[in-house]
Design a protein around this nucleic acid. Structure first.
Lengths: 210, 210
DNA sequence: TCTTTCAGCTAACACTTGTTTGTCAAAGAT
DNA sequence: ATCTTTGACAAACAAGTGTTAGCTGAAAGA
C-alpha cells in the first residue's frame, strides 16, 4: 500500500513543524519558553494548522523529545562484537568519539534532553530517563562481556556504566559552551576519566579496595 | 550604622519575592516559565512593586541563581584537614553524605542550577559554570593533598575531581525522581562509583594503564 | 463524475505577559 | 513641624498566549 500524496504532504508538514521548533531552540532556549504561534510562524503555517498534527502543545513537545531520543540512540548504536575485540582502551576512545560526533551534529538535541530530564513535565522526564537507562544497560552489558572475556570476577558493571554515562554527559555539557577545538581537549579529559574508571573497576573486581 | 526600618522592610520584601519564586518552581517548573505577575501574586504584592526591587525579570532570575550558588557552596563547605585525615573511603562517604543532605534540603535549588546550566541566558550559565568549577577545584586540591600524604606520584587530580562531581551530580539528578528511602541506595551506588574512580586514580598514578 | 475527507486558513475568545505612568501614604531628614 | 524620599499601588498599554468555530479548496475514494 503506497503512500498517497496527502499522507506524504502531511508527514512532511509535521516534519517541518518539528524542524521549526528545533530552529527556535537553537539559541539555547528552553522547550517551555517557545509558543505554539511562534512555532507556527517559523514553519510558515497558520497557528491553528498545528492542531491538525498535534492535539496540543504538550504533544508537540513529546514528539520532539521522542525524535531526540531516537537520534541519540541511533548515534550511539554500534556493533557490540567490535567494541569488545579492540580492547578497553580503544573502546573508550571509540565511545567518546561517537559521543563527540553526536554532540557536533545534534547539539540542540542534547541540550533539550538534558534540560527536560529535570523539566516539569512528568511524561517528558520519564521518557528521557528510560532512554538514558537503556544507554546505561547496553554499556553495562558490554562491560560484563569484556569482563567475562578476561576471566575476571564479576564486577559491578552496572555501576561502572552508570558512572561512565555521567562522566560523558558531564563532559558534553561543558563542551556546549566551547569551540570545536576546545572540545577535543575536553574529549581527551573524558577519555582519561573513563580509563580511570575502568581501571578502578578492574582492580575492584580483583578484590582491591581503597 | 544600624539598619533603618525602611531598609529592613525592603530587604524582607525582597526576600519574600525570591521565596515566592522558589515556591512557584517547587513543582519542577523552569525559571523561564514563571512570570513577573505570577511571582508578584504569590508574594502578595502588586506586579509593579517588583520593579522597586529588581530592574527587570532577568535581574530577579540572577538574584535567585546567586542565592542558589551561595547555598550550594555553604552546604558543600567542609574542613579540609579532617577530610584528609579520615582516609579516602570515609572521605567519599562524607562527601556524598553532605551532598545528599544538601539535596534533601534544597532540592529545588539543585534543579534550578542544573537546568539553568544549559539555559539560554549567558549570564546565568556562566555564573553557574564558575560555581561548579570552584567545586571541582576545591575537590581537586583535596585529592592532591591526599596523594601527597601517601607519597604517590602526581596524579591527574583535576580529572579525578571533575569525574567525581559529574558522578555525584548524575546521581543527584536520578535522586530527584525517587523517594527518600530509594535515594539512600542511589547514594550507596554513588559511593561505590566514587571509590572505583579513586582506586583507578591511585593505580594510574602508579603508572598502571588499561 | 460526484461526494466525502481534511489540511490549512481567518476571525475571534478569554486570558496572560512585561513594562510605564502617575498617585498616595508612610518613613527619614532637616 | 515641614519637606523629601520611596515602597507599594491601580490603571492602562501593546503584545503575546493556547484554543475553538467555521470556511475553503484540493485530493481521495466511490
Amino acid at each position: 500500500m503506497a503512500e498517497t500524496t496527502r499522507q506524504r504532504q502531511k508527514r512532511q508538514t509535521r516534519e517541518r513543524i518539528l524542524e521549526a521548533a528545533r530552529t527556535l531552540m537553537a539559541g539555547g532556549r528552553g522547550l517551555d519558553s517557545l509558543g505554539l504561534r511562534e512555532v507556527a510562524r517559523e514553519s510558515g503555517l497558520a497557528a491553528t494548522s498545528l492542531y491538525n498534527h498535534f492535539p496540543d502543545m504538550d504533544a508537540l513537545g513529546l514528539a520532539l523529545i521522542d525524535s531526540c531520543c531516537f537520534r541519540l540512540r541511533s548515534a550511539m548504536e554500534y556493533e557490540r562484537r567490535s567494541m569488545i575485540e579492540i580492547g578497553p582502551a580503544r573502546a573508550v576512545k571509540e565511545l567518546v568519539g561517537r559521543f563527540v560526533r553526536y554532540l557536533n551534529d545534534y547539539e540542540n538535541d542534547f541540550r533539550l534532553l538534558v534540560q527536560q530530564r529535570l523539566g516539569s513535565h512528568d511524561r517528558y522526564r520519564m521518557r528521557i530517563q528510560r532512554e538514558l537507562q537503556l544507554l546505561v544497560d547496553e554499556l553495562a552489558e558490554d562491560v560484563r562481556q569484556a569482563v567475562a572475556a578476561q576471566g575476571r570476577e564479576p564486577v559491578p558493571a552496572e555501576q561502572e556504566a552508570e558512572a561512565a554515562i555521567a562522566i560523558m554527559f558531564g563532559a558534553g555539557i561543558s563542551m556546549l559552551d566551547n569551540t570545536t577545538s576546545a572540545r577535543r581537549v575536553l574529549a581527551d579529559h573524558a577519555c582519561l576519566q573513563l580509563e580511570m574508571m575502568a581501571l578502578g573497576g578492574r582492580m575492584m573486581a580483583q578484590g582491591m579496595r581503597l
